[in-house]
Amino acid sequence: MKKFSFIILLGVLFAACSEKDAAEIGDAHFKKGEYKKAVAAYTEFLSMKPANEIAIYNRGRAYEELGEYDKALADFKKVLEMNPKSEQALLSIGKNYYRQEDYANAAFQFEKAFEANSQNAQAALLLARANHKAGEVEKAMEFYNKAVSLKNNYGEAYMYRGALNIFLNKMTSGCSDLKRAKNLGYEPAEALYKEYCK
């Protein structure tokens, strides 16, 4: 009886280790840019733990990196079914719409992510960008302001707020933002600063 119990215990430990190993292997492949191998490892892990939200999301990210956007979106939506307030899934779905230039739906997803966590500076910036692209200037400015107030060293947010200010002919504010973005090391701001503020 003891031998039988020990064999069962070994089996349980082996299964737990192999599950953990598959997820960790997926993470390691993802970090190396080996996205096909990451997908395979996450899929293996999910065959044992099909409701693991993190592995589903990570597999979606790997699909995204491979340009397999439909599969990525299916995984992100699956995560959202499991956890309707998953900021990462909402942001990823929003980015999918943004990539398709469907800025209204992108903004909708980014807004839901920001509502889930009003301290998420990335969600504020992405919401601002989607509104900016959709021509919703006031809302874009509101969320650029939120992004920089949440993260005062957010070079990307300063650059885009600066660009919007310049578009609105507020040159002093725009150039101040571009200079801040440049000084924070956000390289794309350098060219804009030279073009509009020198």
Rank of each mutant, 00 (worst) to 15 (best):
A163V: 06
A140D: 01
Y160F: 14
L125Y: 09
K146S: 08
N105E: 13
A113K: 02
A140I: 00
M159S: 06
K133S: 05
E138T: 15
Y158D: 06
G155K: 02
V137S: 15
A128H: 03
A130Y: 01
F143T: 00
K133F: 09
M141L: 14
F167S: 15
A121V: 04
N165S: 11
K170S: 12
Y98P: 02
F114S: 04
L164W: 03
A147P: 04
A116Y: 07
L168H: 12
G155H: 02
N152K: 14
A123F: 07
R161V: 00
A163N: 08
Q119N: 15
M159C: 13
S118R: 15
A163Q: 09
Q100A: 12
F114I: 00
R99F: 13
A113G: 03
N117E: 10
Q100S: 12
A124H: 05
A116T: 02
N153W: 09
A116G: 08
Y103I: 00
A163P: 08
S149V: 07
Y97W: 13
K146A: 07
A134T: 08
F167G: 13
L127G: 03
A157P: 03
Q109M: 15
F110I: 00
N145I: 02
M141T: 05
N169W: 09
E115T: 10
A116F: 10
S149P: 06
V137P: 13
L127E: 01
Y97I: 05
G155T: 02
G135W: 11
E101I: 07
L150M: 13
R129Q: 14
N117M: 12
Y144R: 01
E115K: 08
L168M: 13
A147R: 00
N131P: 06
N96W: 11
Y103N: 00
Y144S: 01
N165D: 10
A134E: 09
H132P: 08
E142W: 12
A124Q: 05
N131F: 06
L126E: 08
E101W: 11
S149N: 13
R129G: 05
N145G: 07
A134S: 14
K112F: 09
R129W: 11
F108K: 15
Q109K: 10
N153M: 10
F143L: 07
K133A: 09
K133Q: 04
M141P: 08
R161C: 02
Y98S: 01
F167C: 10
N105Y: 10
E142V: 04
A107Y: 01
F108H: 12
D102Y: 13
Q119W: 15
E138P: 12
N169E: 15
S118I: 09
M141C: 10
N105P: 04
L164N: 03
G135Y: 11
Y97V: 04
L125W: 05
Y144Q: 00
A113C: 07
N117W: 12
A106I: 00
K146Y: 07
A121R: 03
L168W: 13
L127D: 02
N120S: 09
G155C: 07
